[in-house]
């Protein structure tokens, strides 16, 4: 469904992503692991269209989308949850969700249904629906951005470090939710530093180091690989 070949991303003279090739099949949950600074987030933001690719190709269902703008990617069913969490702090929770459904804003009925569904999934958001999103706790904000991404009924979800800086109980809940989303047939690319958690839910995994893919395999294979820790420490 999503295919990336020889991707490079550069910030000025610094190449953050040197050579990344990966594939994502329909309904699959693939995780991209690696240490801080390995280039995972840059890869994800480049797929989302928020960073330009210096070289390589990104194909979505066979069509080239390497140079597509972020709004185009969103319209084509790719929803992104960036690492920085990026709720709109001055907008209410409800307004945040409403914007999530921007690409299908004419489908009033469907949007209203999804909103109810999200509030069912995340009762805490329902309680705070008219509060500014900036007043939410870190965990609540993470739920909000995931819910907001789901409002567009995406076909692919790009998730960047959903566990970052959250308490373990909340991390567990977030991963339960990711499993639920996968169960519903959604295709997910999950970037994580928390490898053990990610490998629990993933089908397949890639390991990145210094901007390149170092290893790939099924989640079980990667989990069994002994040099996993070494990879991290060296990264």
């Amino acid at each position: 469904m999503l295919e990336i070949a020889g991707l490079q991303v550069a910030y000025g003279a610094i190449r953050a992503v040197r050579d990344v090739s990966l594939t994502l099949a329909e309904g699959e949950l693939v995780t991209l692991l690696g240490a801080n600074g390995a280039g995972k987030s840059s890869t994800l933001m480049c797929i989302a269209g928020a960073l330009p690719a210096a070289a390589g190709a990104i194909r979505l269902e066979g069509q080239d989308v390497t140079a597509a703008r972020p709004e185009v990617m969103a319209r084509r069913g790719v929803a992104t949850v960036p690492e920085t969490r990026d709720v709109f702090p001055d907008l209410t929770v409800d307004e945040n969700l409403q914007l999530g459904a921007y690409t299908r804003r004419n489908d009033t009925k469907g949007v209203a249904e999804d909103r109810t569904r999200m509030f069912g999934m995340f009762p805490v958001l329902a309680e705070r629906s008219s509060q500014p999103a900036g007043t939410l706790s870190g965990g609540e904000q993470q739920m909000l951005v995931i819910a907001r991404a789901m409002m567009s009924r995406p076909r692919i979800l790009l998730l960047d470090e959903p566990s970052l800086g959250l308490a373990p109980t909340i991390v567990n809940r977030i991963f339960e939710m990711i499993a639920t989303l996968k169960g519903s047939g959604l295709t997910i690319l999950l970037v994580e530093q928390n490898a053990s958690k990610a490998l629990e839910v993933a089908d397949r995994a890639y390991v990145m180091r210094l901007g390149k893919i170092e290893a790939e395999g099924t989640a079980a294979e990667i989990a069994a690989a002994t040099d996993l820790k070494a990879l991290y420490l060296a990264g």
Binding site: A48, G49, A50, R69, P70, E71, M73, A74, R75, A79, T80, P82, D86, F88, P89, D90, L91, E95, N96, L99, G100, Y102, T103, R148, S152
Partner: peptide, 14 residues
């Protein structure tokens, strides 16, 4: 209003 705080994120929502 969303774009005023974070233009890129708004674009990523379409």
């Amino acid at each position: 209003r969303a774009a005023a705080t974070n233009f890129t994120m708004a674009r990523m929502l379409g």
